[in-house]
Design a protein around this nucleic acid. Structure first.
Lengths: 124, 124
DNA sequence: GGTAGTAGGTACTTTTTGGTAACCATTGAT
DNA sequence: ATCAATGGTTACCAAAAAGTACCTACTACC
């Protein structure tokens, strides 16, 4: 089915808009990661949702999935594609804007800054 | 209730992430608009959701609401706050990224480009 | 043989979000 | 007197997103 957006911003939100995607992208922005690494770094995400969001990012061409080993236990690694890396600037700016805002609004907090994207900033 | 985000990107998505917010922000980025103007420009949005999203943007400090007239029919005008204008760059970049992506993915289209944000680009 | 680690799937439920339809109050125009 | 325009509100419903719980399959360890 052909998906239709009203503007570019929506199209972009369709890619980075999931609840966990920003954090996943950040961790993958640092370095390639295995599934179990991501689960350790984001203990609150369930397997189902993790797999789901990784599959979506993969089918959107943002990350690559590499499997090594023919029989279980498999070693599955994810990393950013070039397209994924091209989101870096946007994510950094959103991160900065959001952090600045959170620091000014008393009723808002950034819990455990998994994914400040400052790391991406240094590597881009 | 204190709202908590895991990182700045989520905090930003909390503000611009609604289904109609990017479009509303774009139209308001052009010039101040009345409720009925917005409804004419976005015929698909329902009254309820329009009011809802405008209220959220307002309570997030992104837009201002001005009422003129004491008795109905009121004249209600919305415009961007400084904070709202500070989102301009991010929205433009997201717009550009999304449009570029849509032009490369055959199964994706930008329907009726309400809110390309190129206008914001020129005024910022 | 039991347990933990690895990567994932499926069924079901809950929460969040968006949409429909009907309503209020007021004014001005026909 | 009735209707359209203006700017909402409310109760109810539907769809989307996320979460829970349990399942597979294989290996290595003790």
């Amino acid at each position: 089915m052909k998906q239709s957006y009203n503007n570019g911003v929506e199209a972009t939100l369709g890619v980075i808009g999931g609840k966990w995607k920003p954090q996943l992208l950040c961790h993958l922005g640092n370095r390639p990661q295995r599934t179990c690494d991501l689960r350790r770094e984001l203990p609150a995400i369930s397997q189902k949702v993790l797999t789901q969001q990784l599959r979506e990012l993969e089918s959107d061409g943002i990350i690559n999935r590499h499997i090594s080993g023919e029989r279980a236990p498999f070693k599955v690694t994810y990393d950013l594609t070039d397209l994924g890396r091209s989101l870096g600037q946007i994510l950094v700016q959103m991160s900065v804007w959001g952090e600045q805002r959170a620091s000014q609004v008393p009723d808002m907090e950034i819990a455990n800054d998994h994914g400040g994207f400052s790391n991406i900033l240094t590597t881009n």
